[in-house]
Amino acid sequence: MTELYQIHYPLDNNSLQARPQVLAMGFFDGVHLGHQAVIQAAKEQADRLGLPLAVLTYTPYPGLVFEKQALPWRALTPLKQKVELLEELGVDRVYVLNLTSALAALSPEQFVDQVLMPLQAKAVVAGFDHLYGRREEQADMAHLAEYAKGRFIVEAVSKTTLVNQDVKVASRNIRQKLAEGDADFVKESLGRPHQTSGYVVHGDARGRTLGFPTINIWTSEEESLPGIGVYVVSVEIAGKRVLGMASIGRNVTFEKGRPVTVEINLFDFSKEVYGEFVKVDWLHYLRGEVAFSGAEALVEQLKKDREDSLKYFEEN
């Protein structure tokens, strides 16, 4: 099981419990294909050197520390999910370094001497564009060997692009496409479907009267939901994996000005599951939210949505 350490600058050697190790560093939000390439390169270094593999990541998101945010920032992968994904990639330890003004004031050389060296890094691996050190003199991976002074191996991993596209795999691009509802782009960039989690809560129970009963999901504000629309989904619930279709929207057919809700119609599932914790994989965007003339028109569209969802599952 991956060990998790929450650490703060200046570093306390007792809380680090560090030993010689290979260190992959980055924010790793999404643990997308580019991040996976970094972890794989670090894993190969760790195997070659016979050392554990550790990840150095940060909290909170750097943009929250350095810039005023116009909108609330939400993670593609909250810390718990990020650690789980890193564990699947063979990471032995995750160090979560609190990103503070004091840490951000370090020069690149000080960052190496006062952060990387106490972590006993014998090799440091990161994406080619990873930056460290205070803003006015931030350094990239091309300069890390200069500051390492032969004390550890340095490896920079080149950018990852989508197959048949000259599009860099990047968390910022994924967030933008997720907000636009492009679940297929997100899935290709992550190497898996985007996943959110939450609890089944009570809704209006209107779907039941329409012949399309739904579970309503309360999702934490720290998670990133896709943009408003109707999606094909796969849901892990009550120990089962169930297929279905989901609506993220304001239920505009029946009432305007409602808050955004997540409602999922599960196929071949009829249990009462209030309070259950669920994980939702967002597989494919079907359509946008529409204000229908009434319940009859909505039901006809829901029938088509179900057909389109089942067709997607047959083809995929």
Rank of each mutant, 00 (worst) to 15 (best):
E146F: 09
L71D: 10
G249K: 05
H194N: 08
L33R: 15
A123S: 11
E222I: 13
V260C: 05
N14A: 14
E84F: 00
E236Y: 09
Q45V: 10
L119C: 08
L190F: 11
Q36D: 05
V163D: 12
E276C: 11
L71T: 14
P226W: 05
P60I: 07
A145F: 02
L51Q: 12
R258N: 11
K159S: 10
S224G: 01
A37C: 01
S171L: 07
E84P: 00
K168E: 13
A102N: 13
F66W: 10
E300C: 01
V273Q: 06
T77L: 09
A102H: 12
I248N: 00
V94A: 07
F152M: 13
V242G: 08
F128G: 04
Q6S: 10
R192W: 04
E67G: 03
K177C: 07
V157P: 00
D268V: 08
E146P: 00
K177D: 05
P72D: 12
A105P: 01
I228K: 13
N14K: 13
L79N: 06
E44C: 06
H202T: 01
R306P: 00
V200Y: 07
H284Y: 15
G34T: 02
Y312P: 00
Y231K: 06
D140K: 14
K279M: 09
A104P: 07
T196L: 05
Y285K: 08
E137N: 08
I264W: 04
E221S: 14
F185Y: 15
R74Y: 03
P259A: 07
E136R: 10
V22H: 02
Q114K: 13
K168T: 09
D47A: 14
E296Y: 04
T57G: 02
